[in-house]
């Protein structure tokens, strides 16, 4: 197996005195799609926030391209090519749709994604480009959040619960855009509570349980029983 693009090695994470992650190790290869599943509070979002630089971490606990990035500030991590679509989308309400996309690309990392390409991927956003980002429907807002992350031309895209609070048909639309993103060689980590959706797109799966990796393996090789027991700890 080639050197992974991202290597999380024995990562611990804390909120004050509360430890949220216990020695979590995760590998992601270039061009790979990895799903991270688990119940509420299992530490999925914490893992993504740690990778993106929003949590304190040992430098060597997170290697990107063989370089330690653990604990780097988020803006420095972003500059290296890791983009996070945060849970709850986190759009900027004072910015229009187009401005949200522009600010996603303000690092000017070279790559295939431009505003025009994002509008091609999500045509509905082109029609609403001057609207306040908060006036959009939930699904459209999620498209802005994904488009904004793509504007950074990331090598690794982290998606935190992109299906949360959306109607199933909208979730299907959102997931339909993933092949176009992967076609550009971007690696993808999706955090989901919706296991079915996650298993459909991912090559490999990690299941977190109470801050630890309870199960890891190829998506195709996991039995429903194994997932259930890793998910609920029974």
């Amino acid at each position: 197996m080639p050197e992974p693009l991202l290597k999380v090695n024995m990562l611990d994470a804390y909120y004050g005195d509360f430890q949220a992650l216990f020695g979590v190790s995760v590998d992601i290869a270039a061009g790979e799609v990895v799903a991270i599943i688990g119940a509420n509070g299992a530490g999925k979002s914490t893992l993504l926030k740690s990778i993106a630089g929003l949590m304190a971490a040992r430098p060597e606990a997170i290697l990107f391209d063989n370089e330690p990035i653990g604990g780097l500030p988020a803006f420095a991590v972003a500059a290296r090519g890791i983009a996070l679509v945060p849970e709850g989308r986190g759009l900027f309400p004072s910015l229009s749709v187009e401005e949200n996309l522009e600010i996603g690309g303000q690092l000017r990392r070279p790559g295939p994604w431009t505003i025009a390409r994002v509008y091609e991927l999500f045509p509905v956003l082109a029609e609403r480009r001057h609207a306040a980002s908060t006036s959009l429907s939930g699904g459209q807002q999620q498209m802005v959040a994904i488009g904004r992350a793509l504007m950074a031309n990331p090598r690794l895209l982290l998606c935190d619960e992109i299906s949360l609070g959306l109607a199933p048909i909208v979730v299907r639309d959102i997931y339909a855009c993933l092949p176009a993103i992967l076609a550009e060689g971007t690696s993808l980590v999706i955090v989901e509570q919706d296991i079915v959706q996650a298993l459909k797109v991912a090559q490999r799966v990690y299941c977190l349980q109470e801050g630890r990796v309870a199960l890891a393996g190829a998506a195709a090789g996991l039995t429903r029983e194994a997932i259930t027991s890793a998910y609920f700890g029974i």
């Binding site: 945060p86 900027f92 004072s94 522009e102």
Partner: peptide
Amino acid sequence: TALGRAFRATADNPAVAQLMGLDN
């Protein structure tokens, strides 16, 4: 301007603004 956009974004949500590569 881009500076104003950065001001507004940082005012809205400083954590997410950092994810955009902005040093607060």
